Simulated assay, not measured.
Amino acid sequence: MSTTTAPNTAFAHDVVEGLSGEKKHLSSKYFYDDNGSRIFMQIMKMPEYYPTGCEFEILSQQSQDILKKLCFEERFDIVEFGSGDGVKTKQLLTTFLRNQADFTYVPIDISQEALDALQENITATLPNIKMTPKTGDYFEILDELAKSDTPKLFLFLGGNIGNYKPEEALDLLKKFHKGMNKGDMLLMGMDLRKNPRVIQTAYDDPHGITKAFNINLLKRINNELDADIALDQFDFYSNYNPENGEVNSYLVSLKKQHFHSTVLNTTFHFEKDELIWTELSKKYSLNEINNVAEEAGFSVVHNFMDCKHYFTDSLWVK
């Protein structure tokens, strides 16, 4: 291959580590390059993918109730981690502005393309909004934000917390807690346990869009690490376990094969039907939400749910 982008050092390291072990894996955080972000926007529009519609309903119909639950008496910041295209968040921002809330919106995303689209989308509807976008990893930006004593409402929407293993989710929430001041609040989208068939179809859709989303991880390896992966020699599989509330997704090698990365100077070998684990998506019960909030040092103020009780935007306070 003759055209590659400059390699992402962390990505390169994680690919070597993830594809060299006995149980191969690739981190779901690498789904969201510019192309991956575009594909995920397609996923959010699928009728089978209920989380987006459920959360849109909550933020469209209950944002005024959310505002009433906030304990801020002065100007505050709304800090959103992994903001995407902001279609759902716009519902909340519109309601807050209509109720004359004094805030600055601080969206954070690792994709500059996604942030550019977000800013255009938000300002087209809300031209007077105060907005300070930040591009980068929110683990790093959180340290910067912690230096300000302006009260903050943190948004972590879309059920993204479910993508972390239990110990990682708790670690992330403790980092949020550490970077927050007393009285700061966190509004977090959390997918709830429900009929297993509803969940299974949402994560293994008949259109092949979720498959493309996963295959994009291999495209990134080809493009950024100058590899020669035959994309059509991998399939996608996803499974929901209703006993623990976990969806696990995999790429499947369709034959015994290998590929080489020039950037990494490494050849990776796969057996036929060997798996690459790509994503966890955890579904919570209300008891689990209360327990994890308490363990991370938060108190649950209120669970805002859609009419089907498929999803909640859970409001916590430090």
Rank of each mutant, 00 (worst) to 15 (best):
P7I: 05
T3F: 14
L59P: 01
C71F: 08
Q64Y: 05
V16A: 14
G53D: 13
F40M: 00
D77C: 08
V79G: 01
Q62P: 02
D14R: 10
Y50W: 03
F76H: 06
K69A: 13
T4Q: 10
N35E: 08
Y32A: 00
Q64N: 11
V16M: 15
S28P: 12
G86Q: 09
K45G: 09
L67D: 00
Y50S: 07
E80P: 13
I66Y: 00
N8V: 07
V16I: 15
P51G: 06
F31A: 02
E74V: 05
K23P: 02
V16T: 15
F81Q: 10
Q64A: 15
K29S: 12
I78E: 14
Q64W: 04
G18Q: 05
S2K: 14
M41D: 15
L19H: 02
E57L: 12
Y32N: 04
E22N: 12
R38D: 15
R38A: 15
Q61K: 12
E80N: 12
F72V: 07
V16C: 14
E80G: 07
G18F: 04
A12Q: 06
S83E: 03
G53V: 01
D14P: 08
R38G: 09
P51R: 03
Y30I: 05
E73D: 14
G36S: 04
E74G: 05
E57S: 13
D33F: 01
D77Q: 09
F31Q: 03
D14S: 09
R38Q: 15
S2T: 15
D33W: 00
Q42R: 12
E55M: 09
L19I: 06
S27L: 02
S27M: 04
V79P: 00
E22L: 10
V15A: 09
E48V: 08
Y49K: 07
F72D: 08
L67I: 01
Q42I: 02
C54V: 00
I78G: 14
D34H: 10
Y30K: 09
T9G: 05
I43D: 00
M1P: 08
G86T: 07
K23W: 10
I43N: 01
Q64I: 13
Y30P: 04
H13M: 13
K69H: 10
N35D: 05
F40A: 00
S28M: 05
F11L: 12
G84T: 01
A10R: 11
R75Q: 15
N35P: 00
M41C: 12
Q62C: 01
S83A: 08
I66S: 00
E22K: 14
K68P: 01
K68W: 06
E74Q: 12
T5L: 14
G53K: 10
Q64F: 08
I39G: 00
K45T: 07
M41H: 15
P7T: 03
S2M: 13
E55S: 11
G82M: 10
K68A: 11
G84I: 01
F56H: 15
E80V: 06
Y30R: 09
E57N: 10
T52S: 05
S83Q: 02
L70E: 03
F56D: 15
L70P: 01
D65V: 11
N8W: 02
E80D: 13
K29C: 08
S2R: 13
I78P: 11
G18D: 01
V79Q: 03
E48G: 07
I39Y: 01
S60D: 06
T4G: 15
